[in-house]
Design a protein around this nucleic acid. Structure first.
Ligand SMILES: [Mn+2]
Ligand SMILES: [Mn+2]
Ligand SMILES: [Zn+2]
Ligand SMILES: [Zn+2]
Lengths: 136, 136
DNA sequence: ATCAATTCTTGCAATCATTATAAAATTAGA
DNA sequence: TCTAATTTTATAATGATTGCAAGAATTGAT
């Protein structure tokens, strides 16, 4: 799955988000690191580049990005929120051995039609758990 | 979706879980309340019947039940873990207005085969978000 | 029935992720 | 430049979950 992104600043502006230094860095990070990082991973890694960075900024920024539709929030395990720059529908596979989260294609539109008449569906999520090929 | 359950004590024994008073009560509660309750809801409601009940016991019991395959853990939102007595594959719809979680039938076996060759899939989850008919 | 060993429950403290808040820094516009 | 609005930062507060040790209940053997 190869997807191209606008340059971070332009992407922010087009979503009505002001392109501050920190926001651009966080967005660049998410584009480079499509491994579904946690708040902590993002914070730890960016601290090198931005010594004054605060974890609050990461939380604020991710919340803002999610509200603007720039990113997707992934909650597979309790107490382990992850963030995904890929907003298109796709499934996630989490390896219970190594913890890695893989993307996979899934035809969500082919899913569930019957039981949900009268419901307004706004977001569809699919995730599997198991063991990845590396760990098998 | 109507499903019948063994009597709680028998169900516990058949899963090698000792049927203590508290465990039976929690299991009965989950069978009666298939609304995907939180730890807090279970605790609050059972406190009436069991005045000495501790929240630790609820946590311990649910963890044990999940490990024994008696229940399923649902994490749709961060920081809001819910528990489901229905262990068969089915989808969940969460209403973002009223917070209710509905079950729906979903053919998980028809899902994703291609991308995941070489992966050992052990658990499949599908959840949607949106607005339920009552809230529309 | 008694006793010791094991298991379970309880209460409380500790931890960890997330949110709230207010001051300091930055930015935008006049 | 000056002022107002926005953003970042640091720190405190919250809330869910886990860890732990003592007490209670249960089991199995005598
Ligand atoms: Mn993804
Ligand atoms: Mn369910
Ligand atoms: Zn793995
Ligand atoms: Zn609703």
């Amino acid at each position: 799955m190869k997807i191209s992104f606008d340059d971070p600043s332009t992407a922010l502006i087009s979503r009505k988000v002001r392109p501050s230094y920190q926001r651009i860095k966080v967005l660049e990070y998410l584009i480079k690191n499509q491994c579904h990082p946690t708040v902590d991973q993002i914070f730890q890694d960016l601290q090198g580049e931005i010594p004054t960075l605060s974890k609050s900024t990461i939380y604020n920024t991710l919340k803002l990005f999610a509200a603007a539709g720039l990113i997707r929030v992934i909650t597979i395990e309790e107490n382990e929120t992850r963030y995904d720059i890929l907003t298109e529908d796709h499934g996630h596979f989490k390896c219970e051995k190594c913890g890695a989260i893989y993307n996979f294609a899934v035809d969500v539109d082919a899913l569930a039609t019957g039981d949900l008449t009268g419901f307004k569906v706004m977001e569809k999520n699919v995730y599997f758990k198991g063991i990845c090929p590396k760990c098998l």
